[in-house]
Amino acid sequence: MTPRWTATGLSQDLPKGVVMAGHWQGHDLAVWRSATGRLQAWNDRCPHRGMRLSHGFVRGETLACIYHGWVYGAEGGCKHIPAHPALTPPATITVTAFACVEQDGVIWVAPADMAGSPPAVSGVQPLRSVSLTCDLAAVLAVEPALLGQDILRGTVQIDGQGHDVCLLVQNNPAGLTLHALCGVRANKVAASHWVENLRRRAEMKVAA
């Protein structure tokens, strides 16, 4: 699979001091924002015992593992091991970091050596992220106005009016996630109902 930027969440769902699970093409990630707002995406495994770092917690500019409290700082380097407080952790204890960029209210991830910027999604505002149990083909089948592959765009009827929507496609091990954005004049509650309805129609099509 060609490496490419993948949307793994919306900025509004990751405030300062919070870590969440993310994905990049089959890799589990811990995506987190430090107290000062620095965004990072790391492999979701503590090098110590393999615990998910997305279950951990942010303190200041570091991410700590929930299991034994190993503390990781900028670029994924281990800064502190509570059971060995006097030890300076060797540089080999490092979590693999991914490239992580915030643009248009969307959190994008790619391998660390990825060149260029994520695709721009202009003219729309972040709405919400939803997971689906069906595949992308079912979504496209029930909403022909949506065109694209990784980024679905189109004009759809929300509250009886045509509004632009943009759905950023993320394929996770557990299924499909769509990060939805909508035209800036669309009513967000109505747009959210449209997303729910799209999901319902697509999943029912597969079940039928």
Binding site: G9, D13, P15, M20, A21, R128, S129, S131, A174
Partner: peptide, 14 residues
């Protein structure tokens, strides 16, 4: 049942 797919629920539990 993971809460990964439910960002608003996660922030509310926080």
């Amino acid at each position: 049942v993971s809460l990964d797919a439910y960002p608003s629920v996660r922030l509310w539990t926080r």
